[in-house]
């Protein structure tokens, strides 16, 4: 059971009409190391992890969904007013062919999301190390995204990176 707050975890301000970034940001939407993968991974591992960290995984998963919503907002803002021609120029022609202006869970190359991206091994150490590895991969991806833009939404991305780093401090889980 969740309670939904009708606002973003951190406000997203996109200042530059750079449709190209919408395509790259989808790596964090439906990519292997994206927010959807993270949210689903934590939410699922939660059941078979020792009692002590169930709550942590549940909280982190919830936060990943909040991040997912922020990324979705960025992509939506960048694409909602784009013409077909502008989408094509930004490399989103194949996306338009399948989805019009709709958002979809695929990565920057257009590959649709699959649960094969995530794992639940049942072994607490294996699962937690996978989680931490995923956090670092997501952080790296966000850094490369920042490298590709000079827009103001970097601030929101930085907030997500900070959350990432919080989630990959091993002593949060292991004693």
């Amino acid at each position: 059971m969740w309670i939904y707050e009708k606002k973003l975890q951190y406000p997203v301000r996109v200042g530059k009409c750079d449709i190209r970034m919408a395509r790259y940001l989808s790596e964090q939407y439906g990519g292997a190391d994206g927010e959807l993968a993270a949210a689903l991974r934590y939410m699922n591992q939660r059941y078979t992890i020792p009692d002590k960290v169930i709550g942590v995984l549940n909280d982190i998963s919830t936060e990943e969904f909040a991040h997912l919503e922020m990324i979705a907002t960025m992509i939506y803002k960048l694409t909602k007013d784009a013409s077909v021609c502008e989408l094509e120029e930004a490399g989103l022609g194949p996306h338009f062919a399948a989805h019009d202006h709709a958002l979809f869970y695929n990565n920057a190359s257009g590959v649709p999301y699959t649960t094969a991206y995530i794992q639940a091994k049942g072994d607490p150490l294996a699962d937690l190390y996978e989680d931490i590895a995923a956090e670092e991969k997501a952080r790296a991806t966000y850094q490369w995204l920042i490298d590709m833009t000079d827009d103001g939404f970097k601030e929101a991305v930085q907030i997500i990176i900070d959350d990432r780093n919080q989630n990959s401090i091993p002593w949060h889980y292991i004693e």
Binding site: R13, C17, K77, L78, K80, D81
Partner: peptide, 12 residues
């Protein structure tokens, strides 16, 4: 469609 006060691109 929804039009936000801070949309980055010219609105349709």
């Amino acid at each position: 469609p929804f039009r936000g006060p801070f949309d980055p691109c010219p609105p349709v």
